[in-house]
C-alpha cells in the first residue's frame, strides 16, 4: 500500500491553483473538467511522480464549520517538507503570504504555519540544521 494522493478542500479551485503553483511552486499534474469543477491535482517539481495533492471544491456544508474550527486554533490541515523553513518563510513573506506561526524550533525539526488563502492552514517543516 502506498500513499498516492491526498486532498484538501479549497474555496475556489482556480485561486487555489494560482496559489499552489505561482506562490508555493507546485506544478499541475491533472486538470480534468468534471461537471462544475475539475479533477485538479498538483505535485512537487522535485518529485513529479510522487504523491499528488487534490485541490477539492469546498462545497459540502460540513467543510466550513470543520475548517473554521481548525483555523481558529491554528491547526494546519496539510504539511509540506522544505529544505529550510527560515528561507521559505522569507521568500513567501516577500510574496505577501501570511503566516500564523513564524519559524519555530520544535525539537528535531523547524516548523512554520501559513494561510493558503483558500481556507486552510499549511505547515512547512525542515530538519534542524546539523
Amino acid at each position: 500500500m502506498r500513499i498516492r494522493l491526498t486532498s484538501i478542500f479549497v474555496d475556489d479551485q482556480r485561486a487555489a491553483l494560482a496559489f499552489y503553483t505561482d506562490v508555493l511552486g507546485f506544478t499541475v499534474r491533472h486538470d480534468i473538467p468534471l461537471g462544475d469543477a475539475s479533477w485538479l491535482t498538483v505535485v512537487s517539481p522535485e518529485d513529479p511522480d510522487g504523491p499528488e495533492l487534490l485541490l477539492e471544491p469546498a462545497g459540502h456544508p460540513a467543510v466550513e464549520p470543520y475548517r473554521d474550527a481548525l483555523v481558529e486554533d491554528g491547526i494546519p490541515l496539510v504539511q509540506f517538507a522544505v529544505d529550510d523553513v527560515a528561507a521559505e518563510y522569507e521568500r513567501l513573506v516577500a510574496r505577501g503570504v501570511t503566516f500564523t506561526q513564524p519559524p519555530t524550533d520544535a525539537g528535531p525539526v523547524t516548523v512554520a504555519v501559513l494561510d493558503d488563502t483558500c481556507g486552510n492552514l499549511v505547515q512547512i517543516v525542515s530538519p534542524q540544521p546539523v
Binding site: 486554533d73 491554528g74 491547526i75 494546519p76 500564523t100 506561526q101 524550533d105 504555519v113
Partner: peptide, 20 residues
C-alpha cells in the same frame, strides 16, 4: 500564539502530552 503553537511548545520543549 495560536492554541496549536502552544500545544507544540509544551510537547517539544517540556515533554507534556496534555490534550488540546
Amino acid at each position: 500564539q495560536t492554541l496549536f503553537e502552544l500545544c507544540t511548545m509544551l510537547v517539544t520543549r517540556h515533554g507534556l502530552s496534555s490534550t488540546r
